[in-house]
Amino acid sequence: MTPAEFDKACLGLPGATMDVQWGDDHVYKVGGKMFAATGAAGTSFSFKASDIAFEALTESGRGKPAPYLARARWVWFEDMAGMDAAEVADWLKTAHALIAAKLTRKQRAEFGL
């Protein structure tokens, strides 16, 4: 997966926005709440995962608990280039859905969710 594909996958989700935070990190949000992020160099990325996906990805060694966000079940991957674009896009859809589910009914309606 390339940084451009990652960006397209995130911003293609309903109500998704991107902010540059913490230096040059790209942070993807829905309703002002983060669901994914890429590192400043654009090679590493992290996202919100379900409890089951978090355990499966971190215990298998494919991903690592994200620094500062592991408690909230975020998974971190060091190298985006070696990842399957379709698989990552599916994880991003799930991350978006997990965060969008926590938005108010009014916010979800605004985004067509």
Score class of each variant (00 low, 15 high):
1 M>P: 11
1 M>H: 14
2 T>N: 13
6 F>L: 15
9 A>M: 02
11 L>M: 12
13 L>P: 03
15 G>Q: 06
16 A>R: 00
19 D>C: 04
20 V>L: 13
20 V>H: 12
22 W>G: 10
23 G>F: 10
23 G>S: 01
24 D>Y: 05
24 D>A: 15
25 D>W: 14
25 D>V: 06
26 H>N: 07
26 H>G: 02
33 K>C: 08
34 M>H: 03
34 M>A: 01
34 M>L: 11
36 A>G: 01
37 A>E: 11
38 T>G: 02
39 G>C: 02
42 G>W: 08
42 G>R: 04
43 T>H: 14
44 S>V: 05
45 F>G: 02
46 S>N: 12
47 F>A: 10
48 K>C: 04
49 A>F: 01
50 S>E: 05
50 S>D: 10
51 D>W: 00
51 D>S: 06
51 D>I: 07
53 A>L: 13
54 F>R: 00
55 E>Q: 05
57 L>S: 00
58 T>Y: 00
58 T>L: 00
60 S>A: 03
60 S>V: 03
61 G>I: 03
61 G>V: 11
63 G>F: 04
65 P>C: 00
66 A>I: 07
68 Y>P: 00
68 Y>F: 06
69 L>I: 08
70 A>S: 12
70 A>Y: 01
70 A>R: 00
73 R>E: 01
75 V>T: 11
75 V>S: 09
76 W>G: 11
76 W>F: 15
78 E>A: 12
81 A>L: 10
81 A>V: 09
81 A>F: 04
81 A>Y: 11
82 G>S: 15
85 A>R: 06
85 A>N: 13
87 E>R: 08
87 E>N: 11
88 V>C: 09
90 D>W: 03
90 D>Q: 08
90 D>C: 13
92 L>W: 03
93 K>I: 01
93 K>Y: 02
94 T>I: 11
94 T>V: 12
96 H>G: 07
96 H>Y: 02
98 L>C: 07
99 I>K: 14
99 I>Y: 02
99 I>V: 15
100 A>V: 10
100 A>C: 10
101 A>E: 15
106 K>Q: 15
110 E>L: 13
111 F>M: 09
111 F>L: 13
112 G>H: 04
113 L>F: 12
